[in-house]
């Protein structure tokens, strides 16, 4: 499998403080890559760097064979990278339906958008029930579902997910991860998944990168990391 997203020698900083050092990372086309690490390791910053969200960066980032570093966030998104940020980034004062319509804002294929709306409701039937409700009044789990659904409305090739399990009940988390797996296998959407819950991430991902204070300290296929006792104990703590 070829790489869909590739970061080469990326350094990233907020203002004067550098967060990421010489990062090399790739996401295979059709694959799920997990990015693990403790608080402050630079996981979220990596995602923000890919989308050029108020981060200064150097190095090259290519997506589907084209350079995307230096582009505006809007233009990166329009190339097919959907980002579900931490804190979910839903429009809390708008309805569920409006959120989904906005997800497809940059698309011009009206008919396909309507189809995608149906498909998204197939994944998340609960959203259909809440279609006219203000997003801010949804439960945490529903909001996370809405955020993912909104991202899917872009019909992305790559989904960037920032801790989708954060603050949710275990049952909901399991449901969401099951759906993510379906999205990957049925629609062929590649994913870059940031998680603190390593066990969960390893169960879904094909490849794993482990970050420590802004540097990659371990990477390889998920199955291998899962079975490597020393790596698990040293870095993942279980």
């Amino acid at each position: 499998m070829s790489a869909l997203l590739e970061l080469k020698g990326v350094n990233a900083a907020y203002g004067q403080s550098q967060v990421i050092y010489d990062l090399n990372l790739s996401v295979a086309d059709g694959g799920i890559t997990a990015l693990l690490g403790a608080n402050g390791a630079g996981k979220t910053t990596t995602l923000r760097t890919i989308c050029n969200m108020r981060v200064r960066c150097s190095g090259t980032i290519t997506f589907a064979g084209k350079k995307i570093d230096g582009l505006q966030t809007e233009d990166i998104v329009r190339r097919g990278i959907a980002h579900v940020p931490d804190g979910r980034g839903t429009f809390v004062h708008l309805t569920v339906e409006e959120n989904l319509v906005l997800g497809a804002y940059s698309r011009r294929d009206r008919a396909a958008v309507a189809q995608d709306m149906e498909r998204v409701f197939g994944y998340f039937p609960r959203l259909r029930e809440r279609i006219a409700q203000q997003a801010g009044t949804l439960s945490g789990g529903e909001q996370q579902m809405l955020a993912i659904a909104r991202a899917l409305m872009l019909r992305p090739r790559l989904l960037l997910l920032d801790e989708p399990s954060f603050g949710l009940a275990p049952l909901i988390v399991q449901e969401i991860f099951r759906i993510l797996n379906r999205i990957n296998t049925e629609d062929g959407v590649s994913m870059l998944l940031v998680e603190q819950n390593a066990n969960l991430a390893l169960s879904l991902a094909h490849d794993v990168y482990l970050l420590e204070t802004g540097r990659v300290v371990l990477n390889g296929p998920a199955a291998q990391v899962r079975n490597d006792d020393s790596a698990r104990r040293a870095y993942l703590g279980y």
Partner: peptide, 19 residues
């Protein structure tokens, strides 16, 4: 709708491709 979204949450708006 896009203008309302941009006013409410600029960052999330950029993430759906709104200028």
């Amino acid at each position: 709708l896009a203008m309302r979204a941009a006013a409410q949450n600029p960052e999330a708006s950029r993430l759906v491709g709104i200028r």
